Amino acid sequence: MKIIQKIAILSLALFFTFSFTTFAQHDGEGRHGRHHSHKERIEKMKQELGLSDAQVEQIKALHEKKREERKADAKANRAEFKAEMDKILTPEQRKKAEALRAEHKDPNKRAEKRIEKWKTELSLTDAQATKVKAALVTRMTKMQSLKEAAGDEKVDKEERKAIKNAFETGLKSILSSDQFTKYEQIKADKKDKHGKGRKHGRDDK
């Protein structure tokens, strides 16, 4: 009898694991598929599998536990990688690497680099450059906060889009119509180039 109970429990556990994975994969089909948050996936499971409120809470707790475990593993892997890198690099190289990491995390530093490039590409005036930099810092800061809040989960597509749209609305009010058209062309060219690079990478495999 105990063996039968164990088999039943194991079967149920496997069912829920498979079901959750299947729902997650189904909701995320393709890059152009509609983004579903974890909360929406749970709600979909609740409706289609007839889950009780208690089961929903248990699944949420399980998901949170696994998310924390993944975060811990990722943190440990990063620490291990950094330790191995430190053995390879010289003290001077390690110092430079730390400075580059800090610069990459600083929205102001990243915005300054972008502005220097846009000054030439978009023929920005000093006044425009100041305003565009402020808008960039705001966008980068919001995106950084969004990624940190998401942790190991995917950043919400709609929230990312809202931040981007707010930035471009502000940018449109700063740039002239010709400058904004040029900005959109640069963005389109970059996207096209990135897409071709990925396509060639797949063709080479």
Results as ranks from 00 to 15, higher is better:
residue 5 Q to L: 14
residue 10 L to Q: 04
residue 11 S to Q: 09
residue 13 A to K: 03
residue 16 F to C: 02
residue 17 T to M: 13
residue 18 F to P: 00
residue 20 F to W: 07
residue 21 T to H: 10
residue 23 F to I: 12
residue 30 G to I: 05
residue 31 R to N: 14
residue 32 H to T: 02
residue 39 K to Y: 07
residue 39 K to R: 09
residue 41 R to W: 04
residue 46 K to H: 02
residue 57 E to N: 15
residue 59 I to G: 00
residue 64 E to R: 09
residue 69 E to L: 11
residue 73 D to C: 06
residue 79 A to Y: 05
residue 80 E to G: 00
residue 80 E to R: 11
residue 82 K to N: 05
residue 83 A to T: 13
residue 89 L to K: 07
residue 91 P to I: 09
residue 93 Q to P: 01
residue 95 K to Y: 00
residue 97 A to N: 07
residue 97 A to C: 07
residue 103 E to R: 09
residue 104 H to W: 06
residue 105 K to I: 00
residue 106 D to W: 02
residue 109 K to E: 11
residue 111 A to R: 00
residue 113 K to R: 15
residue 114 R to S: 11
residue 115 I to V: 11
residue 117 K to W: 05
residue 117 K to N: 04
residue 126 D to Y: 06
residue 135 A to D: 08
residue 136 L to T: 04
residue 140 M to N: 00
residue 143 M to Y: 06
residue 144 Q to R: 10
residue 145 S to Q: 14
residue 145 S to T: 15
residue 147 K to D: 01
residue 148 E to N: 08
residue 149 A to H: 08
residue 151 G to E: 03
residue 156 D to G: 02
residue 159 E to G: 00
residue 162 A to Y: 00
residue 167 F to R: 03
residue 171 L to V: 10
residue 172 K to E: 14
residue 174 I to P: 01
residue 174 I to L: 03
residue 180 F to R: 02
residue 181 T to C: 02
residue 181 T to Y: 04
residue 186 I to V: 10
residue 186 I to Y: 01
residue 191 K to M: 13
residue 203 D to C: 04
